[in-house]
Nucleic acid binder design. Structure first.
Lengths: 357, 357
DNA sequence: GTGAAAGCGCTAACAT
DNA sequence: ATGTTAGCGCTTTCAC
């Protein structure tokens, strides 16, 4: 057995001789005494090869260290077995878990993923990503972009390349997979209402985020349906620090007894503000988050939140995309994944108002 | 201007006719009345093309909706402008931020990323990933794997494909980029010692993680250098919940006044346990984390922690790899990125022992 | 069950 | 500045 170093040196030598190219099918064919065609058949696991011939080819392959050249194969077949993923904000946990779901599902189907991260969710950057991806060897595209602006632009992507969109309000002509934002926000708001709180304050996400807007709408509708007063929305930017700033304001108001934050990070910031203001959670104020990031069970107090099946959304998106690719058909419409409420220790029945005590 | 739907329908038609293939260089050449070679020159931005000819070609390209076929180009040049990234645990924030750094640096250099996520950091799975990647159109590989086992295996990757390793103890024959784990752990431990704590307890990461082992070693050495007692290590699994369980134990011991957790999530769990046990932080116990995840400034209390430049590590790794690819040379050795301490509110001078009061 | 021929779309090398 | 030729490694088609 060779050490890594020896192998590497060997590699270097090979490289110098073969100019960085491995053995081709022809080489294997020559070594096995068959035609390149037969090698191709073996390589693709076709049945119509004599088992004895197959063995010879396989050992020739092994001996020479043959690997199929995907570029040549792709050139010939027009299929790349590769999916492009366009993604804004690689640092958000939700996106990451979605990406994980996509990557796992892809590798299960023998596809690989080409990642294209976009700094800002604006159409211009998106167009650039489409263009670059259009030149890549991809069979389809998944877009994870928390914004309104999804448009293929003028001629960015070649027609015929299927696209699946996650987390956007892309029109009905697109294939969309997403969590049920409205249902999730309803769950959170109704939970607080059921606990006897007269109303629920909302820490919203950025206006550019469609998930945030949809959650806010659902929060509002739930409040209205219950005949509760709809307080003004406090807008954050997803960061825990923005939640903290908003929490400071909210906590200073003794009327506030229930807060629904649009993600767990902002809920964390709210909790911090409440602690600083000596407002007990949940005795004096109840807080609900959104996402159920893995840390939220260890917040102080452990956070009641809405659980999103991020990985499941990713998996689903990839599978729909693969279906479109393999049937060369377009399947427009939305696939919606339900959310569920995870009840922990940050929510409790509404405190009895001082005037009634 | 066409709507998305119209464009898509148009695409469908094209597809039916051209069997999912776009226009080729030859088509553009014919349309522009030049040779395919000239189209190639324009496509690659070569200088030696008459500007008038170039214009004609460009407009023919635009009109036909031409896009270069990367598979054909790769087949010809033997270069793919694509980097494979093998990664275990897509859900860790650190890995995500590193991936972000890689993806950003790659796209700046006109490379794309092929993601290969590996469920478990064991050699067998790694070998599988190498094999699949070996068949992919990649020019190099970055491995982010928090473990000891990095070995190309037998013949998994074609020789000549450069590899850069992040976060591992890969031998000196490999090119390694990593944060300075030892320095970071020293910073944390020394900070606590300087605050007057007689010793520092450690919540360690899993034994399989080399980063965890290196941090622990450095913590131990720092303690020994200061002549402090080295308490037994409490081992966690990176999760906040494991930090909570360990924290419950630690907090029950009144001698414990300083805790250094091997990541921020476990520190979060420790904080929760301390709150439950009514041990004031930092008045009674000081806590330091590791990583500086974006939420840690909103923990209660805001966490003192060691900041890792994850994205920088990713960027660096990619640039070293690109250098190896473009010079077809191997640059073994370690590139180490320093860490720094971010001081917030979870640490304070050691409480005066009851016996001295 | 196996082989020979042709060509996918592109670019390097060599004309002109 | 532009065109011609050849061939990258593979698979499809059609022979045998």
């Amino acid at each position: 057995m060779l050490t890594g170093r020896q192998r590497r040196l060997e590699g270097k030598l090979d490289m110098a001789i073969t100019a960085r190219r491995g053995p081709s099918m022809t080489d294997v064919a020559a070594a096995a005494g068959v035609s390149a065609q037969t090698v191709s058949r073996v390589s693709n696991g076709k049945k119509n090869v004599d088992s004895e011939t197959r063995d010879r080819v396989v050992s020739a392959m092994r001996e020479l260290g043959y690997r199929p050249n995907s570029a040549a194969r792709a050139l010939k077949t027009g299929q790349f077995r590769n999916i492009g993923v366009i993604m804004f904000d690689l640092s958000s946990i939700g996106n990451m878990r979605t990406l994980d779901g996509i990557a796992t599902a892809a590798s299960e189907s023998g596809y690989s993923i080409t990642l294209m991260s976009v700094a800002h969710p604006i159409q211009r950057e998106l167009d650039g990503a489409f263009t670059r991806l259009g030149e890549q060897a991809i069979d389809g595209v998944v877009i994870i972009i928390e914004a309104a602006l999804v448009d293929r632009g003028e001629v960015e992507l070649p027609p015929g390349v299927p696209v699946v969109v996650i987390d956007s309000d892309a029109g009905p002509e697109y294939t969309v997979v997403d969590s049920d934002q409205a249902q999730g926000a309803h769950l959170a708001t109704q939970h607080l209402l059921d606990l006897g709180h007269s109303t629920v304050w909302h820490v919203g996400g950025p206006r550019a985020s469609f998930a945030a807007v949809r959650r806010e709408k659902s929060w509002r509708e739930t409040l209205e349906a219950a005949g509760a007063v709809v307080p003004p929305v406090m807008v954050g930017d997803w960061s825990s620090d923005s939640g903290y700033r908003v929490g400071l304001e909210l906590g200073a108001n003794p009327d506030v007894t229930a807060i629904f934050a649009c993600n767990d990070q902002m809920a964390l910031g709210v909790l911090r503000a409440l602690h600083e203001l000596d407002r007990a959670v949940p005795a004096s104020v109840s807080v609900v988050g959104f996402d159920d990031m893995s840390e939220s069970e260890s917040f102080w107090p452990p956070l009641t939140t809405v659980h999103q099946a991020f990985a499941e959304v990713g998996r689903l998106a990839l599978n729909v995309l693969l279906q479109e690719i393999e049937t060369t058909s377009h399947i427009p419409g939305r696939t919606i994944v339900p959310m569920r409420l995870t009840t922990r220790s940050s929510t409790a029945p509404a405190p009895v108002p001082a005037t009634l005590r």
